[in-house]
Design a binder for these strands. Structure first.
Lengths: 194, 194
DNA sequence: TAAATTAGTGGACTATAGTCTATTATTGTG
DNA sequence: CACAATAATAGACTATAGTCCACTAATTTA
């Protein structure tokens, strides 16, 4: 972050970060995370590698921000008035799976990077994992309060099972689609609403 | 694999593979997958790197075999006569979580490696993922046939949720312990047996 | 015994993420 | 204008996984 307090110093070129993120997003979408090098990203962005590493601590850190700072923000829960929690959850999961069609490779690579980089793991959890986990928790809390689930339901465990199921499918290259969203929801809410 | 049909050729040194696997297992257990280099493994094993790469196509391939060829074979379902499927599943998960205390770092690293190496991903699924998935499926099938679960239960989805939940916890560095095994089982079998 | 074949050795080599360096550029301050 | 501070450039450099190479060793066959 530029030093706004101290005198002097060359100001950051404010076109650099957007250019780097745009290059990263485009190249990773086209070729896959593993097939894109830092050298290629900086060449396409027209900057030096040090310029990139001054802003992000790793390739994964950059790609996380490139994909999820704006374009990949989690779907909101708005527009769900009158819907059951079950329907909201199904729609939420279907939306997540739709976006995984574009971003699945980046996400599975970021999960992988988090295993070898503790610092990135914390960032990834804060910026990606926990916000999405929280949304599912909200939906399940509403389900309990409206008796779609028993009040005694173990929200944390069910949340881990829902997220875990799609991480498992993503990481083992199995399909993530609307039928699977429906199947997950049916396993969580065994009795269908009438 | 040694060529048993064609004439000639230097026979493989049969002490090499066990030595390499023992070195890999010890070093990865002590220091963690990422902190162990191929150079270190071959130095400890007393072989050349080409000797290793003649037997395994990658570091991950070696570590998978080192950990799960023998010592890490999935727990069996034997000795469960008279137990409910629910109890069998809880015991199975508790055993898995016990072994993850020792092998969790290796497994999360192997899951990570599978994301960037399609060939290894197939090997990992065949040798590690599917056998364990099958065991859970067996337990759940028995649960259905003995009415501990509804016969209409979606076995594949529940299996993905169970595995997924512990992968999720493993990959996000959250605890995997007996209380979590119990919580998973309680979420799958909501009504407690009397 | 020579030839063919395969393994083992001890590296050198390549590709990449990430780090470091010397130089130039851009600001604010006295 | 000189100085201090920070950024950008254009690489060189380090560490590691994985590949390649020249040489030696161990076998079988004719």
């Amino acid at each position: 972050m530029t030093n706004d307090n101290k005198p002097g110093g060359r100001p950051r070129d404010e076109t650099s970060a957007p250019a780097i993120k745009a290059a990263a997003r485009r190249l990773v979408t086209e070729k896959g995370y593993e097939n894109v090098s830092i050298s290629e990203i900086v060449r396409v962005a027209g900057v030096a590698r040090q310029t990139l590493y001054r802003r992000w601590s790793s390739k994964a850190d950059l790609v996380l921000e490139a994909f999820f700072e704006t374009a990949g923000e989690p779907p909101t829960l708005s527009g769900n008035a009158g819907l059951t929690a079950r329907s909201v959850l199904e729609k939420f999961l279907a939306d997540v799976f739709d976006s995984l069609a574009r971003e699945g490779d980046a996400i599975s690579s970021l999960i992988a990077c988090a295993q070898s980089d503790p610092e990135f793991c914390e960032t990834f959890k804060e910026k990606f994992v926990f916000p999405r986990e929280q949304m599912v928790r909200q939906i399940l809390n509403k389900a309990c309060s409206e008796r779609e689930l028993p009040p005694s339901a173990d929200i944390d465990t069910v949340t881990a099972m829902i997220h875990g199921a799609f991480w498992y499918r993503l990481l083992t290259n199995q399909p993530l689609d609307r039928p699977f969203a429906a199947a997950l929801v049916s396993s969580v809410f065994p009795t269908r609403p009438t």
